[in-house]
Amino acid sequence: MLLEIKNLHANIEGKEILKGINLKVNIGEVHAIMGPNGSGKSTLAQVLAGREEYEVTKGEIIYNEKNLLELSPEDRAREGVFLAFQYPVEIPGVSNTNLLKTALNEIRKYQGQPELDAMEFLSLIKSKMKLVELDQTLVSRSVNEGFSGGEKKRNEIFQMAVLEPKLAVLDETDSGLDIDALRIVANGVNKLKSEKNAIVVVTHYQRLLNYIVPDFVHVLYKGKIVRSGDKSLALELEEKGYDWIKAPSDSVEVA
């Protein structure tokens, strides 16, 4: 088991967003977490990455036999957790390559591997750039500064390609993308998918799952996973809409 989330509760500014999440992810699997706006999808992604603003009040997360909640965000990344941000941050004055070289070498140092020199690093990123069809000028520019929405999302997947995480959480990587950009991003992810990693795709739309085919689909609603199934669940959701999920679980809550 790569990741096990047990009865996870989390607050932001005193408001409970996650109300008991349970999830198991094995290596080699692709999981999709779907749900309407405000259901807690992004909160779950941020909690996994270690965002301090979210307070975990109950439950645990075991990752690779370690207590994930006790690790700092940087140590989580060094242990192989990667979050592709829903809203990638613009950092003027810091080049993409500088960020990636620093990050990669910090991770390698932590894992007891030798650091890459400038030449090795350059040839590595050249090969990874092709995966998401990112060109050199974008890669050498300041992190996400002035990037279009699609470029930002491709840049996230590019970073994932370079850092080679064990567990990648893609937070709404598809939102706001046109179909061409979506294909590029999904192709990139599919090429990175392997028997040595696991991917958790957080999405609002079924559309992405035509390109990244999940082994499991979970529906998050009001801070809980209310339904799990295989990829057909996503199709069912697409057909019936989220109201189909909302109605019974709301009534359960009332009762």
């Binding site: 700092s72 990344a77 060094r78 620093t102 910090e106 850092l163």
Partner: peptide, 18 residues
């Protein structure tokens, strides 16, 4: 920005310096 850098494996001091 700090969180973004840390989420990529960059430690607190180094993220600040950057």
């Amino acid at each position: 920005a700090m969180f973004y850098l840390k989420s990529r494996g960059i430690g607190d001091d180094k993220a600040k310096a950057i």
